[in-house]
């Protein structure tokens, strides 16, 4: 469903992404794991057509994101919070998002209900907490009933109840045949959700496979994570 191939991104003289590749399959939750600054967000931004790659490609169902017709009906995404202007209400934010992709207006109430913001729909986004912003971002991602969800650090700012809720939501989406790609630097949260793991460090993929494959030979995902990313950092020195 989501395919990343030989992706290269440079910022000035620094290579942020060095020929990375992986895919996120339908019916599975793929976690994109790595320390801060490893290149997770850069990869997702290229996948969503926000930034340009200096090499390689990122495809959604075989096509670049920018060529999708009504992209929100295929891929729902959330990067850095809700993406809503602080002086707009949640409803007004979702209303223009829906309008832009020909999504029926009834979905606005439905997704607000689904993410638990039904009572805060007429509150200005500037007054939201971090957790509420995350929920609004998810509402926007779910708006077009997309097949794939691409979420950057979705558990950031959520309380334990919220984390439990989002796990259920993403599991349900994958079990219904959808694709979920989420990035995180929090191993504990990811271990409870992911089917597949892709570990990135210093702009390179250091490991990819099912949860069992990646953690094989390590006591826990956390051990595996530090072993994989630490080794890479030493090599870079």
């Amino acid at each position: 469903m989501l395919l990343i191939e030989q992706l290269v991104k440079r910022r000035g003289s620094r290579t942020v992404l060095d020929r990375i590749g992986f895919h996120a399959r339908s019916g599975r939750v793929t976690a994109f794991l790595g320390p801060n600054g490893a290149g997770k967000s850069s990869t997702l931004r290229i996948l969503l057509g926000l930034d340009r790659a200096d090499g390689g490609r990122a495809l959604v169902r075989g096509r670049p994101y920018r060529s999708l017709r009504d992209p929100l009906r295929t891929v729902g995404s959330m990067l850095d919070g809700s993406g809503a202007h602080r002086s707009r209400t949640a409803r007004d934010h979702l209303a223009w998002v829906a309008r832009s992709n020909g999504i029926p207006g009834r979905r606005i109430g439905e997704v607000l209900e689904q993410v638990g913001l039904a009572d805060a729909g007429r509150t200005r986004v500037g007054r939201y907490s971090l957790g509420m912003g995350q929920r609004l971002g998810l509402a926007a991602a779910l708006l077009g009933e997309p097949e794939a969800l691409v979420l950057d650090e979705p558990v950031n700012g959520l309380d334990p109840e919220g984390i439990r809720w989002i796990r259920g939501l993403l599991r349900g989406h994958a079990d219904a045949g959808g694709t979920v790609l989420l990035s995180s630097h929090l191993m504990g949260e990811v271990a409870g959700i992911a089917d597949d793991l892709v570990v990135i460090s210093g702009g390179r993929i250091v490991s990819a496979g099912t949860l069992d494959e990646v953690t094989a030979g390590h006591a826990s995902l956390e051990d595996a994570f530090f072993a994989l990313t630490g080794r890479e950092q030493e090599a870079a020195r």
Binding site: L48, D80, G83, H85, R86, S100, Y128
Partner: peptide
């Protein structure tokens, strides 16, 4: 507090 995101991300995701 709300994630310090910018609206342009949502705009370009919706209208690439």
């Amino acid at each position: 507090d709300a994630g310090s995101g910018r609206q342009v991300t949502a705009t370009l995701a919706a209208s690439p």
